[in-house]
Design a binder for these strands. Structure first.
Length: 291
DNA sequence: GAAATTTGACCAAG
DNA sequence: CTTGGTCAAATTTC
């Protein structure tokens, strides 16, 4: 594929980000071959992830822009925002195909179901959940979970209001938790991406359903250590893994989590898995560099 | 027995 | 009146 002469600004930025990621990955690879500093490794990984995250966001925004010609979606979005002004903190559509019938929609937070409703036009009922710490910590986070009609293995999750319970416990902005009873899994939750903060909220009405790359990347990096919360670099890393954005800006975002059939998030991580993940990135960036 | 879930009732918005 | 969201009593689970 030959590059277009008139490349969009967004495309240049994306490529730039990916090239940065590739460079960092190469550095990391060298560093792993001749180990010197694990801190350096971590910062490199962090940089790589940030690079890809930014590229993904740019791509998704670009696609959104292209979809503008479809008034339907925009109208719906605007209507949604108008009618739910008081609660417009965050709406995240998450599809999780885990085969565990909804109970496994574990995003690292503790939720208490407080209602269920049949939604007309939908085959499946919608469950209403609020943060378990609503009363103890005054956390107003709420989410709605509904099994997708189109794909029963997917769940659509809307997040309304962001968690304040964990923010109260930590001054850092990341939000990753690993429940004691499930130490093998990292739960990545919503987090802001700097680039997004500077964008118009309308542009954030994203639909990343068609963003296949994103889910692959998240799947690739679904590894964890139970002790990650004690390691600052891991916090940064997880920060960069955030599947959603816009905790504070009242923006709608949609994501697609995919069933983890190929890379198991439950498996203990090893250096090998890290390596294979990195090689995935290298491969990916290699492909991109050819475009 | 405490915590979580279920489910019908209630309420506000359109 | 219909619909989606929440409440709260009843029930279940641990």
């Amino acid at each position: 594929m030959v590059m277009k002469e008139e490349m969009l600004m967004e495309e240049k930025l994306v490529i730039n980000e990916l090239e940065q990621g590739k460079e960092l990955a190469n550095q990391l690879m060298n560093n792993l071959k001749f180990p010197s500093s694990s801190e350096l490794d971590m910062s490199l990984i962090s940089g790589i992830l940030r690079s890809y995250e930014n590229a993904i966001v740019m791509l998704s925004l670009d696609q959104k822009t292209l979809k503008r010609s479809s008034p339907e979606r925009i109208d719906q979005s605007n209507k949604k925002r108008r009618t739910s002004e008081k609660k417009m903190s965050e709406k995240v559509k998450i599809c999780v195909g885990t085969g565990q019938e909804g109970t496994s929609l574990d995003d690292g937070y503790c939720w208490r179901k407080y209602g269920q409703k049949v939604i007309h036009g939908s085959k499946n009922p919608r469950g209403y959940y609020r943060c378990t710490h609503r009363f103890t910590r005054g956390c107003l986070a709420v989410k709605q979970v509904q099994k997708s009609d189109a794909d029963p293995s997917c769940y659509e999750v809307k997040y309304l209001e962001s968690h304040t319970c964990k923010a109260n416990l930590s001054t850092t902005k990341f939000s990753v938790s690993v429940p004691k009873d499930e130490p093998k899994r990292v739960h990545v939750t919503e987090q802001s991406v700097d680039i997004i903060k500077h964008m118009k909220s309308e542009e954030m009405m994203l639909n990343l359903d068609d963003l296949e790359n994103k889910k692959d990347i998240f799947r690739t990096f679904s590894f964890s250590y139970p002790e990650t919360e004690n390691i600052p670099e891991w916090k940064n890393l997880m920060d960069n893994l955030s599947p959603t954005t816009t905790s504070e800006s009242g923006i709608t975002n949609e994501l697609l989590y995919t069933s983890s059939s190929s890379v198991s998030v439950a498996n203990s991580p090893t250096a090998d898995s890290c390596f294979s993940s990195l090689e995935s990135i290298l491969d990916l960036s290699h492909v991109w560099s050819l475009m």
